[in-house]
């Protein structure tokens, strides 16, 4: 039987669908029985989905600088 610590270690690969069949079954079995690990895996999945949004939008100044450079190199 896998421990909760093992589940945390396998969670990344579980979410990437990169676990071998026997480990996957053992992880799924543990998740059926353990609400803390279910919460961990569910929240990790949400966190990973949020990571692309973690950077702020560029300021107008930054956008203008990029667009000015493109303008000077092309017929924009």
């Amino acid at each position: 039987m896998l421990s909760c610590r093992d589940i945390v270690n396998h969670a990344d690969q579980l979410l990437d669908r990169d676990l071998g069949i026997s480990t996957r079954v053992a992880v799924r079995l543990h998740l059926l029985l353990c609400r803390h690990c279910r919460r961990y895996v569910k929240q990790l999945a949400r966190l990973i989905k949020a990571i692309p949004f973690m950077h702020n939008k560029a300021t107008e100044e930054e956008v203008r600088k990029v667009m000015d450079c493109i303008h000077s190199h092309s017929n924009l």
Partner: peptide
């Protein structure tokens, strides 16, 4: 975790409105 690998301090329940909102609170950012 405990020495046996069980949760000693399990994860809190997060407020999961949308992926965008999870990491965008001013203080959290």
């Amino acid at each position: 975790f405990t020495g046996q690998g069980q949760w000693q301090h399990p994860p809190a329940l997060w407020h999961l409105d949308s992926p965008e909102s999870l990491l965008t609170g001013e203080q959290l950012a």
